[in-house]
Each structure stands twice: as C-alpha cells, then as structure tokens.
Design a protein around this nucleic acid. Structure first.
Length: 744
DNA sequence: GGGCGATAACTAT
DNA sequence: TTCCAATAGTTATCGCCC
C-alpha cells in the first residue's frame, strides 16, 4: 500500500467522525489511556539502575527456561485467504472486479478489496466513512452461506496436507505439515539426492495454494515456520497471493524477529502497542533489551508473552493449542439506541432464546450468565450472575437477563438508553456430561432457590460497591416488576403480595410449550420467593447452617429462619400422626373451597430451644454453622422410632403417595410437573402453599408451646416476632418462611 | 498471604 | 439523509477461606 496519502485519509476520517458520540467516547478512552501511559513512564523513570539490573537477572532465568523449551522440529503453516469475503464477491460478480468495493453495511465493513484499500477503506471501518474516503466505493452485503461453502472447499484442501488442521475462522487456518513432509521426502528420495526440508516445505505449500486456487478461483497467502506465532507473522509477509518461509534455524529466527515491528505480532494490538511504545519499544528486539523494565511494570502473564515474542517462540502442537474447549458462548446485537423498556426486555429475551438454541444445538450448558450493554454514549458494561446450576434453558437465561437489566435500569441516572445488548454464557460443560438426570430435581430446585438468593444479593452488593449509591436497598431486584414491563403495563406490582395475580399472567404469557412447564413452575417458585425476600429483607448476607436433622446446608437470612427450618425438620421426622401429610392431602380435597383464603396470620408457636441454640452464637464468625450435635441427637433418637420413610412421601402435585424414597418422589414430581398444564399447576400450587402453610401452622400450634425466639438477638433482648415490623411485612415474611419450609 | 471463585473490564481479531 | 460490529479469550480486582 505504498503511496497511500495517510494524512489525507486521517483527515477525512476525523472530519467524518468528529463530534459523534462514538468519537467522543473514543477520545475519552484515549485520554484515559494517555494518563495511564504517563503514569507508567513516570514509574519507569523512578526505578534505580540496581532495581532494573536485578529485574533483568530474574528475567534471564525466565528466558533460559523458555529457551530450553524451544522446539524446531515441526513445520507449521498459517494460511490466510486474501480479502476473503471481498474476493468471493468479486469472483461471483465480474462487474466488481475493477471497482473499489467492500463487504459489509453502512454500519460496519468486514473486508475491502485492494482497490478500496488504496483509498484507506479497510475492515472494521463504518461504511459511511468508507464512502467519504472513496465516494465510488461499492458496498456489498455479506453472504455468509456462500463464504461457508467456499471455506469448506478450502478446508478440503487443507485436510490433504494435515487432517488435523485448525481452522481459526472461515478464511484462516494453521496446519502442521511435518508428517506430510516426511512422507513426501521418503517417497521422493529415490529420485533426488539433495532434497532439503526447506525447499520441500515451500513447494508443498505452493502446491497447496495452487490447489485452492484451482478449486475456488481464490488466492491465499501462507507463512511457513517452526511454530504458530512465527507462521502467522510470515503469512503476512508476502500478501496477497504469496508465501514466506522461515527456516527452523535459531539465527535466522533471531534476525527475523529482531527488526519485526511489535504490532505485527498476533496478540499485540493497539493498546499494548501504545504501552510498549511509551517505553521506547517498537520492534521485537527491544523487548529483550528492556526486559528488566518490563518485569517491573507488567504482570507475569504479560512478560511471559513478551519474552516468548522476543525469542520467536510459539506453539508447536496444534492439538494442544487449539483443541482447548470453548470457554464461553455469546450473542449480541446493536440497534438504534432506545430507552424503551419493553423493547429492551423483548430484545434481551430474543437474545437469550438465540443463545439457548445455539447452546442446545452444540450440546453445551453453562453456569455463568453475563449481560452486556452498551449505552448510546458507547459505554460498555457487563453484569454477570452465577446460576444455581448449569443450564441452557432459555427461560432461565431470560429470567436472569431481565433481572440484571432491570437492575441496571433502576440504578442508572435517568432512563437507561442502550444501543447494544448481549448475552453470554461461560463456565461451560457438555450437556451430555450432566448425567442421566438432566431435569432439575426438586432437591436441586431447593438448592437453586437458596443459591439464587445468594447470587442475587451478591450481585446487588457488587453493584453497590461499584456505584456507591445510597439507594441500593431500593435496587434489590423485584422480579414482580418484570411482568408489568414485559406486558407494557404501567403498573408494576412492586410490593404487592398477591401470588395469584401478577406472576400468573407473567408466566402464562411466557409459556410456549408444555414441555417447559416444570421449568416455569420452578422459576415461579423462585421468583415468588425472591421477590418477597428482596422486598422485605433487602440485600443482606445469607448465612449457611448445617442442619443436623436433614443433613443439608441451609442458607438463611438469620438464625430465626434456621430455627424455623429446624423446627420443621424435627417436627416432620418426629411426627407420627403425619399432620403435615394430612394437611397437604387436605389441600387437594379442599382446593375448590376458599382457594383465595388470605389467612397469613400464622401464629408461630414458640420454640423453646433457646438455650441449645445459643451455642450457635459463638460460631457466628464463620459462615457455616453447625448445630451442637447433642442437642439434636436426643430428638433424633426419639424420632427414629417413627421415621418418615415408613410414612411415605406425598406428591404435592397429583396426590399420589407411597413414595418410600425421596428420589423416587423427586422424579415423580418432575414428571407430574411436565404433564400438567402450567396455569392449572400454578393454581394448585398456590392453594397448596396456603393450605400447607396453614396445616404446618396448626401442627406447630398443637405441638409447640412457647414463644418464638429470635436467637440472632442477645438473650436479654429476645423480641417477639412482629414487634418491630409492620403487619404486612410480618405476613410476607411468614409466607417466605412457609415457602421455605414447603420447599425443604 | 496464597489460592480461588465471582465479577467486570480490557483486548484482540 | 443517515452513519462505528460481533465474539471470545484474558486480565484485574475483590472478597472469602484456610
């Protein structure tokens, strides 16, 4: 690209973008970087000679170690199709061949042909600027299906030389042709005496490029070197339609590397280049010269990379390098900026569906969900949440995404106006590795509830730290807001405790297929639970206790909650007359009667285990608490006379009992949830919640006889429940507790 | 204080 | 007349735990 008037090009680009939000943002970023660079320079100047000398010695050890791992035995090829997308378009439309053209859209160009590059039009440039640089520029929309088809043809050629080649993208791949060369040389040795590996490699690669051309009418460039890093640099040396061979010779490599501009190295981009430039490092040999300074200024990972570059080292095994498992999967979309909540929620949901589909198709599930947003001012933010379990369920992703998005909306100054939304899943694993029980079991569901509570509160706490907002308690995501926004309603039902109204419509409308019913059901439970927790408790820390009765780790807000859990556990295993089961069975029988009973005025009968539980207080410094075993062993010995297994478990969905085994019940409930229509299920569950709550309450009233004790308080200031809370709050809290019990 | 998981931002292509 | 992407890996930082 000699003779390019870069000054003129830069001026046109500046004129075209100056004043735009994008440009302003870019300038701001550069200013921030400049500050960092200045700080770095200052730090660099402050080191004494002695410090640098010592750092250099330390680096020498690293260099020795790296050098000892040098392997020059492999012949690696990097093949890169020339201006791939543009080349395909030009091949298929001869009228484009002599014109400056680019593939892309008005928003962004993917590739340009060499005619266009003369005007400064290149990849990653917006189309309108391309037009400014070159008014006659033809912009062709991309045809990915076509590129994929061509790519397959090219890869067929690659496979002839290395069946285990690594495709980096549609137009780029690494090949290890060492074995191919050995075989060829053996086959040819009878004919010629002086076959050296170098000319053989060059000939083989030239032949490969020729085959590609014959097959596709497209040219490729290639680099041949002892490792991937060098091969990549070499493929750029004689572009287009050329190749470059760097022999496996230490001296040749060193001289090749020495004058190589650092920016030519894959992995060193704009920002890293600026960092290094600030220290006077412009070519690779400088990296070695200033290694002491680098050691003092950069992270271990960075200096390791820098030294590898300086030595001309790289990967020599493609399989070890590229066959790493995928670490994340994502999708994102840019749109005309909007602050319309309904639109943003809908978009988010669509993205989640898309991501879920792709994950399902690839057979992967993930555990960490990340929402990415870009404001109309080009500010990029990401918000992540770790899910209770691995999944690729679109509903779970969407629910999580909505929570995070809503939180951003609530914490933003003024309306949140976005131009990009993205969703990403990481911590991936193969869906097949999840084992036979792919559906969430009830047990998992319970743990999911607990974990969601923790994650959510963590997420919010994280945000508090970020924004230092004083209004954070208000920011606790109320999932009850979602349906209102999703349906365009003006009235988010924040704060209302009416499980029958808002949530039901929400999930009904989200529901698309019956097979997803169980997930919806679980989401519903979680959301009901979460919204109430969030509303009443704010984002407080959860604590974990080990229940000596059921043996599970129970996550609770405070000891009172755990107290309640223990009571339930103890009562449940000790109860010979099966009050609980009866109460749940009664639910079904009576479900037509007074389904909307609003009786939340449960009078929790006292649990006079105060003295026993006080011991727990001393363990409060850790997050996991263990109940003194003596205090429960007694209870257990009495209860063992009448274990729950002899009683059987009741399916809360269909009324079938006789499940002697918890896991059997679990499976059955999942099936049940699948079978029934969702809306009906929800109605039933709602009724069951209340009835079982009532039943539990009655049961407790019968069997317990002291006032409840809030043991999170010092014994001298034991409070009666509700004494310091409003009636409504108290009521809601009880619903929460009941739900907790029900789930446990 | 090291190891590690969670989260957010950065960087490269 | 308008008008600057999409995807994924890496790194930094914080808090928790031992």
């Amino acid at each position: 690209m000699d003779g390019l008037d870069t000054n003129k090009i830069n001026e046109i680009i500046r004129n075209a973008s100056e004043g735009s939000r994008f440009y302003l943002h870019k300038e701001k970023r550069q200013q921030e970087l400049d500050v960092k660079l200045a700080q770095m320079k200052e730090a660099a100047g402050s080191y004494t000679e002695d410090q640098i000398k010592r750092a250099t010695q330390q680096m020498d050890e690293m260099v020795l170690e790296l050098e000892s791992e040098r392997d020059l035995r492999r012949t690696v090829v990097h093949v890169d199709m020339d201006m791939f997308y543009a080349a395909v378009e030009m091949r298929d439309d001869p009228s484009l061949r002599n014109k400056p053209m680019a593939v892309g859209g008005p928003g962004m160009l993917s590739t340009s042909n060499y005619a266009a590059r003369r005007y400064g039009v290149r990849a990653a440039m917006p189309g309108f600027i391309g037009k400014k640089l070159c008014p006659e520029l033809v912009i062709v929309p991309p045809h990915f299906d076509k590129y994929r088809a061509v790519s397959r043809q090219v890869q067929e050629v690659f496979a002839e030389y290395d069946p285990n080649f690594s495709a980096m993208s549609l137009d780029e791949a690494y090949l290890d042709i060492t074995d191919y060369l050995h075989n060829s040389i053996q086959a040819l040795q009878h004919e010629s005496e002086d076959l050296d590996m170098g000319s053989m490699a060059s000939a083989v690669v030239a032949e490969m490029r020729e085959k590609i051309y014959t097959k596709t009418q497209l040219t490729a460039s290639a680099g041949i070197a002892p490792n991937t890093r060098l091969a990549k640099v070499c493929s750029d040396m004689n572009k287009p339609n050329g190749q470059f061979y760097l022999p496996p010779d230490l001296e040749r490599i060193q001289s090749f590397i020495a004058t190589l501009p650092i920016r030519k190295v894959s992995g060193i981009g704009n920002v890293t280049e600026q960092h290094l430039n600030a220290l006077g490092i412009t070519q690779c040999s400088h990296l070695m010269e200033k290694r002491g300074l680098l050691k003092l200024l950069f992270s271990d990972t960075s200096i390791h990379t820098f030294m590898s570059v300086a030595l001309g080292l790289g990967h020599t095994s493609l399989s070890a390098w590229t066959e790493k498992e995928r670490k994340s999967i994502s999708t994102e979309t840019t749109f005309k900026g909007t602050s319309d909540r309904l639109t943003l929620f809908k978009l988010t949901e669509d993205l989640c569906q898309e991501l879920a589909d792709e994950m399902e198709q690839k057979g992967i599930v993930g555990k960490v969900f990340t929402l990415k947003i870009k404001t109309t001012d080009f500010q990029v933010r990401s918000r992540a949440q770790t899910l209770g379990e691995v999944t690729h369920d679109p509903e779970i992703l969407a629910t999580t995404a909505h929570r995070l998005l809503l939180h951003e909306m609530n914490t933003s100054d003024g309306p949140l106006s976005l131009r990009l939304l993205g969703v990403r899943m990481s911590s991936l694993m193969n869906a097949a590795d999840m084992g036979p029980n792919r559906q969430a079991t009830l047990r998992q569901m319970f743990s999911k509830v607990a974990q969601s509570r923790v994650s959510l509160s963590d997420a919010v706490t994280g945000n508090e730290n970020l924004h230092h907002s004083k209004e954070q308690s208000r920011c606790m995501v109320s999932t009850e807001e979602l349906p209102a926004y999703l349906h365009g309603s003006d009235e988010p039902s924040v704060g209302s405790v009416q499980p029958e109204s808002s949530e039901k419509t929400k999930y009904k409308s989200l529901g698309k297929s019956r097979s997803k019913n169980h997930v919806k059901m679980k989401n519903l439970l979680i959301d009901q639970f979460l919204s109430k927790v969030s509303e009443n408790y704010g984002a407080r820390e959860m604590e974990q206790y080990e229940c000596s009765v059921c043996g599970k780790l129970v996550k609770v807000k405070n000891l009172t909650e755990f107290n309640n859990h223990l009571d339930f556990c103890l009562e449940n295993s000790a109860s010979c007359d099966s009050d609980l089961d009866t109460s749940i069975t009664d639910v079904k029988k009576a479900k037509s009667q007074n389904a909307h009973s609003d009786d939340y005025n449960i009078k929790w009968k006292p649990v006079n285990k105060h003295t026993e539980y006080q011991n727990i207080q001393s363990h409060k410094d850790t997050n996991t608490h263990r109940i003194p075993t003596e205090s429960v062993t007694n209870v257990r010995s009495t209860s063992s006379e009448c274990s729950s297994s002899s009683q059987g478990y009741l399916c809360p969905v269909c009324d079938q009992r006789n499940f002697s085994d918890y896991d059997l019940l679990n499976k059955h409930v999942d099936e049940c949830l699948n079978k029934s229509a969702f809306s009906q299920m929800q109605r039933e569950m709602d009724v069951q919640f209340r009835r079982s709550e009532k039943g539990i309450n009655e049961m407790l009233q019968k069997s317990l006889n002291a006032e409840p004790v809030d043991i999170s308080q010092p014994s001298s200031s034991i409070k009666r429940k509700g004494s310091s809370r409003s009636k409504k709050t108290e009521k809601v809290k009880k619903v929460c507790n009941t739900l907790d019990r029900y789930l446990s």
